[in-house]
Nucleic acid binder design. Structure first.
Lengths: 195, 195
DNA sequence: TTCGTCATGTAATGGGTTACATGATTAC
DNA sequence: GTAATCATGTAACCCATTACATGACGAA
C-alpha cells in the first residue's frame, strides 16, 4: 500500500524521501500517515526490486538528497497493482489512497473499484443497523452514540461514492457519444474532475 | 487496545472468546474488527498476567467453551488504562473504542479525553484546509475530492465530539446543582445518555 | 449425513511505529 | 552561534492479519 502510494507520487514527478512524506501528509493526511522508519526502508526495497531508481546528484549542494525516479517496470507494476484492487481487508480500508490515483485508470476500472468499495460499506452499514435495532436494551448510551455515529459516517461515505460513481457514468456516456475516441486519452485531464 | 476492549466487555459480563468477537463486531464493527488469530492469544496473555481468569466448566455440554471473567486486578488495570488515555498515535485513532467505555469514567475525565481528541482532529482539519487552499493547481480531481471528503468527515467528527462534550458539561452542572451527591454514582445510569 | 455455525487454536507474515542516532542547511 | 527544519537511516517492538488445522454441535 505504501509502495503503491510511493510509486503513484513518483509517477507524477521524481522526489526524495522527505518530500514524499510531505506530499503524502498533505494529500492523504486524513486517512494515512507514514513514518520515516517505514518510508526509507520501503524506498530501498523498491530500489532493490528495480521499480524505482536513484537519480545521480546534480551538484555538490544537494549531495545528501536521494532523489528517486520510477522506472518502466515500476510504472507497469503500479498500474497492475492499482487495477487489481484491494487484496485484503486491510488494503480495502485504505481505499482513499487508491482513489488518489484513479486518474491513471480507465473509467470502467474506476467504476468497478468504486462499486466494490460501496458493497463493502453497505454490508457494514446493514450489520450496523441490525445491531442498532437490537441494541438499545443491551448497551449503554456511549456505545449507542458510537453506533449511530458509525452509521452516519458510513452513510456519508456511501453518498460520496455514489457521487463519484455517477460522475464516472456520465463520463462513460460522453465517451460513447463522442463515438470516435482519438487515441490514448490523457488520464490527468479526461476524468470528470479537472485538475 | 484489544486488551482494553476485552477487559471492558468482560467487566460487563463473563464471556468466551467467540462471543467476545461477536460483541466487538456488533458494537465497534464500524471502527474495529478483530480476528481470532489476535483474540485468542490475547486472552491467554491476559490470563497469564492475571487480569482475567477462566471459569470452571459448569457442565459436560459446555466443556469446550472457555468462559473468562475479569479479576480485581483486571478491573483496576482497565480503569487505569482507560483514564490514562491514548499513549500513541495508533491508540489515538482507536478513540471510538475508548468511548464505548466512557460510562466507567468520571465526567471530568470524559471531558478531558473528549477535548484531547477534539484537539487532535482540529489540528488535522487545519492542516487539511491549508493543503486544500494550495492544492487545486497542483493535484488532480480525485485527490481534491478526497481532501474535501476528508475535511467533511473530520468536521462531522468534531461536531459529534462537541455534542458529547456539551452533554457532559450539562451533567456536571446538574451534579453541581444537586450539591449533595449521595454516594458512588452508578456509571451505567448516571451519564447523559441512558441505556 | 452433511452443511453451517460454533469454538479454539497456532505459525508465518505483514505493515507499520517508536525511539534513537546522525549530520547538513537555513534563518535569525 | 544556535535553533528549527531538512534529510536519512537502523533496531526493536507492536498489534494485528492470513492461512491453516481441528473438532463439536445442531438442523435439514
Amino acid at each position: 500500500m505504501l509502495e503503491l502510494a510511493i510509486l503513484g507520487l513518483l509517477k507524477e514527478r521524481s522526489m526524495h524521501g522527505y518530500e514524499l512524506k510531505k506530499q503524502l501528509g498533505q494529500r492523504l493526511g486524513f486517512f494515512w500517515t507514514v513514518s520515516f522508519g517505514s518510508l526509507y526502508p520501503t524506498l530501498k526495497r523498491l530500489e532493490r526490486r528495480g521499480v524505482v531508481e536513484r537519480l545521480p546528484h546534480a551538484d555538490a549542494t544537494s549531495r545528501r538528497k536521494h532523489v528517486y525516479r520510477i522506472t518502466e517496470t515500476g510504472e507497469e507494476e503500479f498500474l497492475a497493482l492499482l487495477e487489481e484492487g484491494p487484496q485484503s481487508a486491510w488494503e480495502d480500508e485504505k481505499f482513499p489512497l487508491r482513489l488518489a490515483f484513479f486518474g491513471y485508470l480507465r473509467p470502467e476500472s474506476r467504476i468497478r473499484l468504486l462499486e466494490r468499495r460501496k458493497q463493502t460499506l453497505e454490508g457494514r452499514l446493514a450489520e450496523g443497523r441490525r445491531s442498532l435495532r437490537s441494541a438499545p436494551a443491551r448497551v449503554d448510551g456511549y456505545t449507542l452514540s458510537l453506533m449511530r455515529h458509525g452509521v452516519s459516517v458510513t452513510e456519508h461515505d456511501i453518498a460520496w461514492l455514489d457521487e463519484l460513481i455517477a460522475a464516472e457514468r456520465a463520463t462513460l456516456e460522453e465517451l460513447a457519444d463522442a463515438e470516435a475516441p482519438s487515441n490514448e486519452p490523457d488520464p490527468a485531464t479526461e476524468h470528470p474532475h479537472g485538475p
